[in-house]
Amino acid sequence: MSEAPPTGIAGKSAPAPRQPSRRTSLWAFRGALTRRTQAAVGFGTSMLLLLVWEAAARAGLVNATFLPSPVAVLNAMLLMVQKQNLLWHAGVSTLRVWTAFALAAAMAVPVGILMSSYRVVGAALEPIIDFIRYLPVPALVPLSIIWFGVGESTKLYLLWLGTFFQLVLLVADDMRRVPQEYVEIAYTLGARTPQVLRDVAFRAMLPGLVDNLRITLGWCWTYLIIAEIVAADSGIGFVIWTARRYMKTPEVMAGVVVIGIIGLVTDQLLRAAHRRAFRYL
Protein backbone atom coordinates (compact mmCIF):
# COMPACT_ATOMS: atom_id res chain seq x y z
CA MET A 1 0.00 0.00 0.00
CA SER A 2 2.98 2.32 -0.38
CA GLU A 3 2.46 4.85 -3.10
CA ALA A 4 4.61 7.78 -4.08
CA PRO A 5 3.27 10.90 -2.40
CA PRO A 6 1.34 13.04 -4.87
CA THR A 7 3.17 16.15 -5.92
CA GLY A 8 1.07 19.28 -5.78
CA ILE A 9 0.61 21.23 -8.98
CA ALA A 10 2.49 24.25 -7.67
CA GLY A 11 5.29 22.07 -6.37
CA LYS A 12 4.00 22.21 -2.83
CA SER A 13 3.23 18.79 -1.52
CA ALA A 14 -0.35 18.29 -0.56
CA PRO A 15 -1.06 17.68 3.12
CA ALA A 16 -1.02 13.99 3.89
CA PRO A 17 -4.60 12.73 3.78
CA ARG A 18 -5.78 11.50 7.12
CA GLN A 19 -5.44 7.76 7.18
CA PRO A 20 -8.92 6.28 7.45
CA SER A 21 -8.93 3.74 10.24
CA ARG A 22 -9.10 0.15 9.05
CA ARG A 23 -11.67 -0.75 11.66
CA THR A 24 -15.00 0.60 10.53
CA SER A 25 -16.45 2.85 13.16
CA LEU A 26 -19.75 1.98 14.81
CA TRP A 27 -20.57 5.66 14.79
CA ALA A 28 -20.05 6.63 11.16
CA PHE A 29 -23.08 8.76 10.29
CA ARG A 30 -25.45 6.51 8.29
CA GLY A 31 -22.61 4.01 8.08
CA ALA A 32 -23.01 0.33 7.36
CA LEU A 33 -22.83 -2.45 9.93
CA THR A 34 -22.29 -6.13 9.30
CA ARG A 35 -25.29 -8.30 10.06
CA ARG A 36 -23.19 -10.03 12.72
CA THR A 37 -22.46 -6.79 14.55
CA GLN A 38 -26.11 -5.76 14.35
CA ALA A 39 -27.24 -9.03 15.89
CA ALA A 40 -24.61 -8.78 18.60
CA VAL A 41 -25.57 -5.20 19.48
CA GLY A 42 -29.27 -6.07 19.56
CA PHE A 43 -28.66 -9.07 21.76
CA GLY A 44 -26.41 -7.02 24.03
CA THR A 45 -28.94 -4.26 24.72
CA SER A 46 -31.69 -6.79 25.35
CA MET A 47 -29.54 -8.62 27.87
CA LEU A 48 -28.53 -5.37 29.51
CA LEU A 49 -32.16 -4.38 29.94
CA LEU A 50 -32.99 -7.75 31.48
CA LEU A 51 -30.03 -7.47 33.85
CA VAL A 52 -31.02 -4.00 35.04
CA TRP A 53 -34.57 -5.15 35.53
CA GLU A 54 -33.52 -8.24 37.44
CA ALA A 55 -31.17 -6.21 39.62
CA ALA A 56 -33.86 -3.64 40.36
CA ALA A 57 -36.29 -6.40 41.34
CA ARG A 58 -33.76 -8.13 43.59
CA ALA A 59 -32.76 -4.92 45.26
CA GLY A 60 -36.39 -4.38 46.12
CA LEU A 61 -36.56 -1.14 44.16
CA VAL A 62 -39.87 -2.16 42.61
CA ASN A 63 -42.92 -3.84 44.06
CA ALA A 64 -42.92 -7.44 42.82
CA THR A 65 -46.71 -7.39 42.49
CA PHE A 66 -46.36 -4.75 39.81
CA LEU A 67 -43.07 -5.68 38.23
CA PRO A 68 -41.85 -9.19 38.92
CA SER A 69 -38.27 -10.00 38.00
CA PRO A 70 -37.40 -11.62 34.68
CA VAL A 71 -36.50 -14.83 36.48
CA ALA A 72 -39.93 -14.89 38.14
CA VAL A 73 -41.59 -14.34 34.78
CA LEU A 74 -39.54 -17.10 33.23
CA ASN A 75 -40.45 -19.49 36.05
CA ALA A 76 -44.10 -18.62 35.64
CA MET A 77 -43.81 -19.25 31.93
CA LEU A 78 -42.28 -22.70 32.41
CA LEU A 79 -44.96 -23.58 34.93
CA MET A 80 -47.65 -22.42 32.54
CA VAL A 81 -46.21 -24.54 29.78
CA GLN A 82 -46.48 -27.58 32.03
CA LYS A 83 -49.73 -26.91 33.83
CA GLN A 84 -51.80 -24.61 31.65
CA ASN A 85 -51.02 -25.72 28.14
CA LEU A 86 -49.42 -22.37 27.36
CA LEU A 87 -47.95 -23.64 24.10
CA TRP A 88 -51.34 -24.87 22.95
CA HIS A 89 -52.85 -21.45 23.71
CA ALA A 90 -50.01 -19.82 21.81
CA GLY A 91 -50.69 -22.15 18.89
CA VAL A 92 -54.40 -21.30 18.94
CA SER A 93 -53.63 -17.59 18.89
CA THR A 94 -51.07 -17.95 16.12
CA LEU A 95 -53.51 -19.94 14.04
CA ARG A 96 -56.19 -17.28 14.50
CA VAL A 97 -53.79 -14.53 13.49
CA TRP A 98 -52.61 -16.35 10.40
CA THR A 99 -56.08 -17.41 9.30
CA ALA A 100 -57.50 -13.93 9.58
CA PHE A 101 -54.39 -12.41 8.09
CA ALA A 102 -54.34 -14.78 5.13
CA LEU A 103 -57.99 -13.99 4.54
CA ALA A 104 -57.39 -10.25 4.73
CA ALA A 105 -54.31 -10.44 2.49
CA ALA A 106 -55.99 -12.66 -0.09
CA MET A 107 -58.74 -10.06 -0.40
CA ALA A 108 -56.68 -6.91 0.03
CA VAL A 109 -54.04 -7.68 -2.58
CA PRO A 110 -56.37 -7.95 -5.58
CA VAL A 111 -58.62 -5.13 -4.38
CA GLY A 112 -55.65 -2.84 -3.73
CA ILE A 113 -54.13 -3.61 -7.11
CA LEU A 114 -57.43 -2.93 -8.85
CA MET A 115 -57.83 0.34 -6.96
CA SER A 116 -54.63 1.76 -8.43
CA SER A 117 -54.95 0.08 -11.79
CA TYR A 118 -58.38 1.50 -12.49
CA ARG A 119 -59.18 4.96 -11.23
CA VAL A 120 -62.91 4.16 -11.08
CA VAL A 121 -62.36 1.35 -8.63
CA GLY A 122 -60.16 3.59 -6.52
CA ALA A 123 -62.66 6.43 -6.62
CA ALA A 124 -65.50 4.10 -5.72
CA LEU A 125 -63.83 2.39 -2.77
CA GLU A 126 -61.55 4.96 -1.24
CA PRO A 127 -64.16 6.89 0.81
CA ILE A 128 -65.61 3.70 2.29
CA ILE A 129 -62.24 2.23 3.11
CA ASP A 130 -60.93 5.45 4.58
CA PHE A 131 -64.03 5.69 6.77
CA ILE A 132 -63.81 2.18 8.13
CA ARG A 133 -60.05 2.40 8.51
CA TYR A 134 -60.46 5.10 11.11
CA LEU A 135 -62.96 3.21 13.23
CA PRO A 136 -61.20 1.80 16.26
CA VAL A 137 -61.60 -1.97 16.23
CA PRO A 138 -62.60 -2.16 19.94
CA ALA A 139 -65.56 0.07 19.15
CA LEU A 140 -66.82 -2.61 16.80
CA VAL A 141 -66.59 -5.44 19.29
CA PRO A 142 -70.20 -5.17 20.56
CA LEU A 143 -71.51 -5.03 17.02
CA SER A 144 -69.52 -8.05 15.93
CA ILE A 145 -70.74 -10.02 18.93
CA ILE A 146 -74.31 -9.18 17.96
CA TRP A 147 -73.59 -10.31 14.41
CA PHE A 148 -71.41 -13.34 14.96
CA GLY A 149 -71.95 -14.35 18.60
CA VAL A 150 -68.89 -15.23 20.65
CA GLY A 151 -67.55 -18.05 18.52
CA GLU A 152 -64.45 -18.30 16.41
CA SER A 153 -65.92 -16.19 13.61
CA THR A 154 -66.13 -13.08 15.79
CA LYS A 155 -62.43 -13.20 16.44
CA LEU A 156 -61.57 -13.77 12.81
CA TYR A 157 -63.91 -11.00 11.81
CA LEU A 158 -62.34 -8.52 14.22
CA LEU A 159 -58.84 -9.38 13.08
CA TRP A 160 -59.84 -9.17 9.46
CA LEU A 161 -61.49 -5.83 10.12
CA GLY A 162 -58.35 -4.46 11.72
CA THR A 163 -56.06 -5.48 8.89
CA PHE A 164 -57.97 -5.62 5.63
CA PHE A 165 -58.73 -1.93 5.32
CA GLN A 166 -55.24 -0.86 6.29
CA LEU A 167 -53.70 -3.37 3.95
CA VAL A 168 -55.83 -2.43 0.95
CA LEU A 169 -54.53 1.11 1.03
CA LEU A 170 -50.94 -0.03 1.47
CA VAL A 171 -51.25 -2.41 -1.47
CA ALA A 172 -52.83 0.30 -3.59
CA ASP A 173 -49.92 2.53 -2.73
CA ASP A 174 -47.35 -0.13 -3.63
CA MET A 175 -49.03 -0.53 -6.97
CA ARG A 176 -49.18 3.20 -7.55
CA ARG A 177 -45.45 3.46 -7.01
CA VAL A 178 -44.59 1.03 -9.80
CA PRO A 179 -42.78 3.22 -12.34
CA GLN A 180 -44.91 3.96 -15.39
CA GLU A 181 -41.82 3.19 -17.48
CA TYR A 182 -42.00 -0.50 -16.57
CA VAL A 183 -45.61 -0.66 -17.64
CA GLU A 184 -44.93 1.14 -20.89
CA ILE A 185 -41.90 -1.00 -21.71
CA ALA A 186 -44.12 -4.06 -21.42
CA TYR A 187 -46.78 -2.53 -23.65
CA THR A 188 -44.25 -1.64 -26.34
CA LEU A 189 -43.05 -5.25 -26.22
CA GLY A 190 -46.54 -6.37 -27.14
CA ALA A 191 -47.94 -7.27 -23.71
CA ARG A 192 -51.65 -7.02 -23.00
CA THR A 193 -52.97 -5.56 -19.77
CA PRO A 194 -53.30 -8.84 -17.81
CA GLN A 195 -49.76 -9.71 -18.83
CA VAL A 196 -48.49 -6.28 -17.82
CA LEU A 197 -50.15 -6.75 -14.44
CA ARG A 198 -48.77 -10.23 -13.88
CA ASP A 199 -45.31 -10.05 -15.44
CA VAL A 200 -44.34 -6.49 -14.66
CA ALA A 201 -46.49 -4.50 -12.25
CA PHE A 202 -46.89 -7.33 -9.75
CA ARG A 203 -43.23 -8.26 -9.92
CA ALA A 204 -42.20 -4.66 -9.47
CA MET A 205 -44.41 -4.13 -6.42
CA LEU A 206 -43.66 -7.48 -4.80
CA PRO A 207 -40.81 -6.45 -2.47
CA GLY A 208 -42.83 -3.54 -1.10
CA LEU A 209 -45.90 -5.72 -0.81
CA VAL A 210 -44.12 -8.40 1.19
CA ASP A 211 -42.76 -5.74 3.50
CA ASN A 212 -46.21 -4.30 4.07
CA LEU A 213 -47.64 -7.73 4.74
CA ARG A 214 -44.99 -8.29 7.36
CA ILE A 215 -45.82 -5.03 9.09
CA THR A 216 -49.57 -5.61 8.96
CA LEU A 217 -49.18 -9.07 10.43
CA GLY A 218 -47.84 -7.37 13.56
CA TRP A 219 -50.99 -5.26 13.85
CA CYS A 220 -53.05 -8.42 13.70
CA TRP A 221 -51.68 -9.45 17.08
CA THR A 222 -52.92 -6.24 18.66
CA TYR A 223 -56.46 -6.98 17.62
CA LEU A 224 -56.14 -10.63 18.52
CA ILE A 225 -55.61 -9.84 22.19
CA ILE A 226 -58.61 -7.54 22.22
CA ALA A 227 -60.73 -10.23 20.61
CA GLU A 228 -59.51 -12.92 22.99
CA ILE A 229 -60.02 -10.80 26.06
CA VAL A 230 -63.58 -10.01 25.12
CA ALA A 231 -64.78 -13.36 23.93
CA ALA A 232 -62.67 -16.46 24.23
CA ASP A 233 -61.86 -19.47 26.32
CA SER A 234 -58.57 -20.12 24.62
CA GLY A 235 -55.57 -18.24 23.27
CA ILE A 236 -52.96 -16.08 24.87
CA GLY A 237 -55.31 -13.15 25.36
CA PHE A 238 -57.56 -15.43 27.38
CA VAL A 239 -54.59 -16.68 29.44
CA ILE A 240 -53.44 -13.14 30.20
CA TRP A 241 -56.91 -11.98 31.12
CA THR A 242 -57.52 -14.95 33.42
CA ALA A 243 -54.20 -14.43 35.20
CA ARG A 244 -55.03 -10.76 35.69
CA ARG A 245 -58.18 -11.63 37.55
CA TYR A 246 -56.12 -13.29 40.26
CA MET A 247 -53.42 -10.61 40.14
CA LYS A 248 -50.84 -13.16 39.03
CA THR A 249 -48.55 -10.56 37.53
CA PRO A 250 -45.76 -12.99 36.56
CA GLU A 251 -48.26 -14.99 34.53
CA VAL A 252 -49.65 -11.88 32.89
CA MET A 253 -46.17 -10.86 31.92
CA ALA A 254 -45.28 -14.35 30.76
CA GLY A 255 -48.22 -14.21 28.36
CA VAL A 256 -47.10 -10.84 27.08
CA VAL A 257 -43.56 -12.09 26.63
CA VAL A 258 -44.75 -15.09 24.64
CA ILE A 259 -46.48 -12.75 22.19
CA GLY A 260 -43.30 -10.71 21.97
CA ILE A 261 -41.21 -13.77 21.23
CA ILE A 262 -43.60 -15.03 18.57
CA GLY A 263 -43.58 -11.58 17.00
CA LEU A 264 -39.81 -11.30 17.07
CA VAL A 265 -39.23 -14.72 15.57
CA THR A 266 -41.87 -14.30 12.85
CA ASP A 267 -40.56 -10.90 11.90
CA GLN A 268 -36.97 -12.05 11.67
CA LEU A 269 -37.94 -15.08 9.60
CA LEU A 270 -39.97 -12.95 7.22
CA ARG A 271 -37.13 -10.45 6.91
CA ALA A 272 -34.70 -13.24 6.10
CA ALA A 273 -37.10 -14.64 3.52
CA HIS A 274 -37.42 -11.17 2.02
CA ARG A 275 -33.67 -10.80 1.69
CA ARG A 276 -33.43 -14.22 0.12
CA ALA A 277 -36.28 -13.73 -2.33
CA PHE A 278 -35.25 -10.25 -3.42
CA ARG A 279 -31.51 -10.56 -3.74
CA TYR A 280 -31.53 -8.14 -6.63
CA LEU A 281 -32.47 -5.19 -4.44
Binding site: P179, I185, T188, G190, V200, Y280
Partner: peptide
Amino acid sequence: DHRRGMVFQSYSSFPW
Protein backbone atom coordinates in the same frame (compact mmCIF):
# COMPACT_ATOMS: atom_id res chain seq x y z
CA ASP B 1 -46.44 -2.90 -30.33
CA HIS B 2 -43.02 -4.46 -30.65
CA ARG B 3 -42.22 -2.80 -33.98
CA ARG B 4 -41.72 0.47 -32.15
CA GLY B 5 -39.53 0.03 -29.08
CA MET B 6 -38.88 2.50 -26.29
CA VAL B 7 -35.69 3.18 -24.37
CA PHE B 8 -36.29 5.45 -21.41
CA GLN B 9 -33.84 7.55 -19.47
CA SER B 10 -34.55 5.86 -16.16
CA TYR B 11 -36.19 2.61 -15.12
CA SER B 12 -35.08 1.35 -18.51
CA SER B 13 -34.61 -2.27 -17.42
CA PHE B 14 -36.37 -4.53 -14.93
CA PRO B 15 -34.38 -4.85 -11.70
CA TRP B 16 -35.76 -8.29 -10.83
